[in-house]
Amino acid sequence: MESFIGTYECKVDNKARLLVPAPLKKQLAAALQDGFVLKRAVFQPCLELYPMKEWNAVMEKVNKLNRFVKKNDDFIRRFTAGVKVVEIDNLGRLLIPKDLMAFSQITKDIVLNTKVNIVEIWDKQLYEKAIDDSLVDFAELAEDVMGNVNDDDNGIS
Rank of each mutant, 00 (worst) to 15 (best):
V69S: 06
K70R: 10
K71V: 14
K71M: 11
N72H: 11
N72I: 09
N72K: 04
D73V: 08
D73P: 01
D74I: 13
D74E: 15
F75M: 13
F75T: 07
F75C: 12
I76F: 08
I76L: 15
I76D: 08
R78Q: 14
R78I: 08
R78D: 15
T80K: 09
A81Y: 13
A81Q: 09
A81R: 10
A81P: 02
G82W: 10
G82R: 10
V86K: 14
I88C: 11
L91A: 10
L91K: 11
G92Q: 03
G92E: 08
G92V: 07
G92D: 09
R93D: 11
L94R: 05
I96E: 01
K98H: 07
K98T: 14
K98G: 13
K98C: 06
D99A: 06
D99E: 14
D99Y: 02
L100V: 01
L100M: 01
L100F: 00
M101D: 04
A102T: 13
F103T: 00
I106K: 03
I106E: 07
T107I: 14
K108N: 15
K108E: 15
K108V: 15
D109E: 15
I110T: 10
I110A: 04
I110Y: 14
V111M: 02
V111R: 03
L112K: 01
L112H: 01
L112E: 01
N113T: 04
N113S: 13
T114H: 03
K115H: 09
K115V: 11
V116D: 08
V116T: 13
N117H: 06
N117T: 06
I118N: 13
I118R: 15
I118C: 15
V119Y: 14
E120Y: 13
I121G: 06
W122P: 12
W122T: 04
W122V: 03
K124L: 04
K124S: 07
Q125N: 12
Q125D: 09
Q125K: 14
Q125G: 08
Y127N: 00
Y127H: 02
E128G: 03
E128P: 01
E128N: 07
K129N: 11
A130W: 00
A130G: 05
A130E: 06
I131P: 11
I131T: 11
D132C: 04
D132W: 00
D133W: 02
D133Q: 08
S134P: 05
L135Q: 06
L135I: 02
V136G: 00
F138D: 05
F138A: 04
A139F: 02
E140S: 10
L141S: 04
L141P: 02
A142S: 10
E143R: 00
E143T: 00
D144N: 04
V145G: 02
M146K: 04
M146R: 04
M146S: 07
M146G: 07
G147S: 09
G147P: 12
G147T: 12
